[in-house]
Design a protein around this nucleic acid. Structure first.
Lengths: 241, 241
DNA sequence: CTTCTAAGCTTGTATATACAACAAAATTCA
DNA sequence: TGAATTTTGTTGTATATACAAGCTTAGAAG
């Protein structure tokens, strides 16, 4: 079921398409290879190639028309997406006490709860980033973040750049313009996958909503494996000096 | 490709599942028929039944676990943040001024995290309560709490001045999905002075901000010394080892 | 009793095939 | 020329099959 790198086949094709789109090798609104062409190129069945195209369509990367083809969707977000990716690199480069890895960065139609939280219309494009945080070489937290694309500059300047998830928990300043909710949940599929925990292991999930004068800016989930992240562990983190 | 009504087959199955969920014929967190069972029941292939289940999972109606089955998701989990916010607004509007008011919601099957914390068996009935704390006639804290039913009398007698307006709750919102609203921080100066605790002692801080379209309307928070705060003990997650 | 193993279920991935629905291009026909 | 028709290629739906991956339970082994 997997290729030489252990990755699933449809995921390999997704990565390929994403790289073509992000590097603008396939420009906006350009027609991309058909299901059959991709299937031939990657030596998979059409249904496998189709799955890659379909998931990217659901994530807002592509749009497809029956009888016509598949096309690269509005990359208005893509320049900003690259910005966020650079910032994730910056977090890692600065050598905070934990390592962060950006595993997914896409623009996707707004889920209902995010639309409500951010005051966006349903299915409006929203930035979605997925970051795995490590401590002691072990995946510790999974951060899913939804960002209002139109407010990215403010968001970057005020909030995102220099703050680590630990600082989210300990710093007081953001409290004046943010809501925090910590809840105990069972891990969703993404969390299970990235933290490598069983479905039955309870997690702590931090939900954070950030506001600017213009309104809600971001909506983030930060999920931590319960067995690795005791509440006491959170409390020992030093506050921002 | 379509059935007698011209509807697509997977859509027919989706509608069926949705009707079962919406009428609570299949209650929350209950296991629903497997892919093969649905395929047999509707005389379709497993992949068609699978598509119905998959799309409903993506929509948050179901959740699925490999090797186990498909289950009815809790719709409240997607909107609980807003429901809690509405309750806070409603409490403030109605002008309740008690030191601590227990607004009991329901008894729930014990989530895994609570089972771990309280030492109950999984899915055993547990008391879920929502407690509002007031100070200086201002709403100060909104607290979600799980209680071991067998310990409720002691709990009531020892800790709180309580009122239980069931009718109020039924009028406001049925909050059947549990949320813990608590944040872990180190104490600030004010907290240290009033609680007489060292700076290194962890605290639980709850924050509550209420917004209208014009901006922030109210802000409520409560910081409690972790060692004195009963909820902290309940929420502490023990490592597996 | 505990621990390990195997069976039997579940969902997840992948293949090969077939036909339907649709749109654009090519062809035919007036 | 211009309109109607056919062809071609695309995505959409559906089936049947196979194996992988994961969880639970039953039973064997110690």
């Amino acid at each position: 079921m997997t290729n030489s790198s252990g990755q699933k086949k449809f995921a390999t094709i997704k990565d390929y398409i994403l790289s073509q789109v992000e590097t603008a090798a396939w420009p906006e609104h350009s027609r991309i290879p058909s299901e059959n062409e991709l299937a031939t190129q990657f030596a998979v069945s059409r249904m496998t190639a189709r799955r890659a195209l379909q998931e990217l369509t659901e994530q807002g990367v592509l749009y497809r028309t029956q009888g016509v083809g598949s096309f690269v969707a509005s990359p208005k977000s893509q320049s900003s997406l690259l910005e966020i990716r650079n910032i994730a690199d910056e977090i890692q480069r600065r050598g905070h006490f934990h390592k962060a890895e950006l595993v997914q960065l896409t623009s996707l139609p707004c889920p209902a709860i995010v639309a409500t939280a951010l005051g966006l219309s349903r299915n409006a494009p929203v930035f979605f980033s997925l970051i795995v945080h490590y401590e002691n070489q072990q995946p510790l937290q999974l951060e899913a973040r939804y960002v209002n694309p139109e407010q990215v500059p403010d968001y970057l300047a005020q909030d995102f750049v220099l703050q680590t998830p630990h600082e989210y928990l300990s710093a007081v300043a953001p409290l004046t313009d943010a809501e925090h909710i910590v809840e105990a949940v069972l891990p969703d599929e993404l969390t299970r996958q990235h933290l490598k925990i069983p479905a039955s292991e309870p997690c702590l999930r931090l939900t954070r909503r950030t506001f600017s004068r213009g309104g809600a800016v971001s909506f983030a989930y930060l999920t931590s494996a319960g067995s690795r992240y005791r509440l006491g562990g959170q409390l020992t983190i030093q506050p921002k000096a």
